[in-house]
């Protein structure tokens, strides 16, 4: 397990060394902070605005971090850093797991920074107190983002960077929009086909919080379980593709 953690740590530290990440985080925090100023133009909706802005920014940061999986494998392949690592007694599966865990780690860190920033800023402005519902919604957003990272790692094993990113985003968008079609359709076949796609709709639960609702614990548990199973599937698929790959 040590070598998996080494790969994860290396992936995370490489991303953490990117100045763009800090720039992004700083901008996002500034945007959330500036949410307080827009109270007047939203005509009395500043509380909702701040909350939604915070959630939107957390989600954007999460998605951007998750897309690192799409970039990382093709980049390592292109820069040939992968050759040195894979010539070590480290299975390719373990390498993929390490990459995935590293991206999950970096996503968690950056989303936590933005999430805490959002909670602190809105609490300072006296708009709402941090509560459990916000945490639950953030967990669900994180789950969705991790699923995106899992999709990205599969696409990254055989596509170029930009193509993998594009396809990951298309999958993200499509699955989100289709999530509820499945629930409303009468055709069971269509339903089952749509249920094969990752469930990104769980991140819509921020709507519940913004409206003062309560997210069921069952939903949170289901979201986490779903994400775990989906990530596992995607890692096995990625492993099957990647083991045939020539590290030229």
């Amino acid at each position: 397990m040590d070598d998996v953690m080494v790969i994860a740590q290396n992936t995370a530290s490489r991303v953490l060394r990117m100045k763009a990440l800090y720039f992004l985080l700083a901008i996002v925090i500034c945007i959330i902070a500036s949410g307080q100023l827009y109270g007047d133009i939203t005509v009395g909706r500043e509380k909702e605005y701040s909350l939604d802005l915070g959630f939107a920014m957390t989600m954007i940061v999460g998605v951007l971090c998750a897309l690192v999986t799409c970039f990382d494998l093709p980049r390592e392949l292109r820069e040939k850093t992968m050759v040195a690592v894979l010539s070590k007694p480290l299975g390719r599966d373990r390498y993929l797991i390490g990459k995935f865990l590293g991206v999950c780690e970096i996503t968690l860190i950056s989303m936590a920074i933005v999430g805490v920033g959002m909670l602190v800023l809105t609490a300072m402005a006296g708009q709402f107190r941090p509560n459990l519902e916000i945490i639950k919604a953030l967990i669900l957003v994180y789950c969705a983002v991790v699923q995106l990272a899992a999709v990205g790692i599969v696409l990254g094993t055989f596509l170029k960077e930009w193509l993998a990113t594009l396809l990951a985003l298309v999958t993200f968008w499509g699955s989100y929009a289709l999530g509820y079609v499945a629930a409303n359709t009468t055709s069971t076949i269509l339903q089952k086909i749509i249920y094969l796609l990752p469930n990104f709709a769980i991140m819509g639960s921020d709507n519940v919080v913004a409206r003062g609702g309560i997210i069921e614990w069952r939903l949170v548990g289901g979201g986490v379980l779903l994400t775990a199973v989906y990530s596992l599937i995607m890692l096995i698929v990625a492993g099957l593709i990647f083991r045939r790959k020539d590290i030229a």
Partner: peptide
């Protein structure tokens, strides 16, 4: 996964205050 996804999607649709456009 299909089973879990179906269950979670059902929960989502029933969840009060969920995005109507999504529904």
């Amino acid at each position: 996964f299909v089973g879990i996804n179906g269950g979670v999607s059902d929960l989502l649709v029933k969840q009060e205050g969920m995005d109507v456009a999504l529904k």
